[in-house]
């Protein structure tokens, strides 16, 4: 492999890794903000107080790794790299917005259920993790939808007039 090709591959892998780290960061951000606010306000740091951060870290790191591996694969194999990255940017925007906004809305709306949530710690953790998983699922949906929309003319052209288009899930893997 030539030096130039190695450099291009390294850039692509670096970009994919950066994207994965960004995806993990926006998922972990709400928990980090709550934790740093409480600590800055004078609440003693404790392992118990890190429960939400731990849940977010599991969801965020998991999704970050998934994003990294997918982008690394797609950016070397796909027919149209801009489609991959445009869809990825949309997904990251959706993830960043929803992972914070959904939590704020859900926690605010469940204000009347504080006692049961506080009484059984796992319900709070499940709620927190569940909301973040919903944000991840929506971000995935956005990524797939945008990618499908971007590639539909090419897929139709490939399949020929009057025939069923090539499914996006096959198309995105490239030749």
């Amino acid at each position: 492999m030539s030096t130039r090709l190695r450099a291009v591959r390294a850039v692509r892998e670096g970009a994919a890794a950066l994207y994965g780290a960004a995806a993990a960061a926006v998922v972990v951000a709400p928990a980090l903000i709550l934790d740093s606010t409480a600590t800055g306000g004078g609440v003693a740091p404790s392992w118990q107080a890190l429960d939400l951060l731990a849940v977010s870290a599991v969801v965020g790191l998991g999704y970050g790794v998934v994003c990294y591996r997918r982008l690394r694969r797609q950016s070397t194999m796909t027919r149209s790299r801009p489609n991959v990255w445009i869809a990825a940017v949309h997904a990251l925007v959706a993830l960043a917005l929803l992972s914070s906004v959904l939590l704020a809305v859900v926690l605010h709306e469940l204000g009347s259920m504080q006692a049961p949530l506080a009484g059984q710690e796992w319900t709070l953790l499940a709620l927190w993790g569940g909301v973040q998983l919903v944000a991840v699922a929506v971000a995935e949906g956005v990524e797939r939808g945008v990618f499908r929309w971007l590639t539909s003319p090419e897929r139709r052209a490939l399949a020929g007039h009057g025939e069923r288009p090539v499914p996006a899930r096959h198309y995105r893997r490239g030749p």
């Binding site: 903000i33 118990q48 204000g111």
Partner: peptide
């Protein structure tokens, strides 16, 4: 996020506390 949502999360106290 920077102007509204994250400041709201840090300003409010929305996570239920243990008894």
């Amino acid at each position: 996020l920077a102007d509204q949502v994250w400041p709201l999360l840090s300003r409010e106290d929305l996570v239920p506390g243990r008894t």
